[in-house]
Simulated scan of single mutants.
Amino acid sequence: MSGHSKWANIKHRKAKVDAQRGRIFTKLGKEIMATARRGGGDPEANPALKAAIARAREANMPLENINRLIARATGELDGVNYEEVNYEGYAAGGVAVLLKALTDNRNRTAPELRHLFARHGGSLGEAGCVAWMFDRKGFLAIPKDGLNLDPEELMLLLIEEGAEDVREESDVIEVVTDPGDLGRIRELLSEKKIRFTGDEITMVPNSTVPVTDRNTAEKVLNLLDALEEHDDVQRVYANFDIPDEIMNEIDQSA
């Protein structure tokens, strides 16, 4: 869980900068089109599309843009056909990296990703080389700021409702569920007017690789950052465990 948590926190701090560059709109747009094409354009009948739309609205994507993307995906307008592809590899220090991408050209995407891995001391691997190190889970984070319940009381409630893992971090409470239970947990929080962020079906590492050397840690984080920046990459998962003191040093020197 450490790799997921710490990388999620890094991405959260970057979110506003990414949105200003417009890159996040590109990624969200691809996700909306792919989920609408796969499960239909009605968000009430397509939970994956509903979640993608919620993330797009959270990023302030105009509703008109969202409707246009859905129309393209369902054939009402001409659009690009994006294919979902998983890529796997290793970062420096033997850290496993799993990518979920949406591409209209595999022959372009794979070499570009291979170059990014090599540039940052890693290597793109074969299909299946690291996927077994991750489990498909539901995930969301509850900010402590403005929380209307005692954190311990909330954590017990979530466990009673079927959450598989609930842990308290410095500024959020992280919740891991079975993928099928995420919707129920989300509804519970909404009913109690508890704000949550980052709700998604994700890939959580079932074991982690300790990274205690700062140089190696920087290579790992730089690779993940570069992969996040790639237009075709939708999700980046890794199983690193970097000590907080090294993370803080890197953060302060950035």
Rank of each mutant, 00 (worst) to 15 (best):
D213L: 03
S207F: 12
G162W: 06
R136M: 10
G122L: 03
L154T: 07
T197V: 15
N148V: 00
H120N: 15
L116P: 02
G146F: 04
V166Y: 05
G125F: 00
R195S: 12
A131C: 04
G146H: 03
E160Y: 10
K193I: 03
R184C: 02
K193Y: 07
E218V: 14
V166N: 04
R195I: 11
G180C: 08
I194S: 07
P111Y: 00
P205D: 05
D145K: 15
N206M: 11
T202V: 13
I173R: 01
D199E: 15
P143D: 06
A141T: 02
F134A: 12
L157F: 03
G180T: 07
S190Q: 11
E112N: 14
K193W: 04
P210W: 01
E112Y: 02
S190A: 11
S170G: 02
N148A: 00
D150Q: 12
R214L: 08
G162N: 06
R186Q: 13
E160R: 13
E191P: 00
D213S: 09
E187S: 14
T208V: 15
R114P: 03
K193V: 04
G146D: 08
R136Q: 11
E152A: 14
P111R: 01
F139I: 00
D165T: 11
E112T: 02
R114A: 14
P210H: 05
L147F: 05
I142Y: 00
E168A: 09
E169G: 13
M133K: 13
D150H: 09
L182Q: 06
G162M: 08
G183L: 06
S207D: 14
A131H: 07
G162Q: 05
T212I: 15
I194W: 03
S123N: 10
L140F: 08
I185L: 13
R186S: 14
V172W: 03
E218T: 06
T177E: 04
L157M: 14
C129Y: 01
E161G: 04
S207V: 09
R184N: 15
E200V: 08
T216A: 09
D135V: 10
N206T: 11
G121L: 06
K144P: 01
F134P: 08
A163K: 01
L147C: 08
S123E: 12
R114K: 14
L149S: 12
E174P: 04
L158M: 14
G183D: 14
L116C: 00
V211Y: 02
I201C: 04
G162I: 09
L188A: 00
D181Y: 04
V211A: 12
V204E: 00
G128Q: 08
H120K: 06
H120S: 08
E174D: 11
L124T: 07
E161H: 13
T177A: 08
E152G: 05
K144H: 01
D171E: 15
I185K: 01
E218C: 02
I142G: 00
L140P: 04
V166T: 09
E153Y: 02
I185W: 02
T177S: 14
S190I: 01
A163E: 04
E126H: 08
D165Q: 13
I201S: 03
E191L: 04
L113C: 06
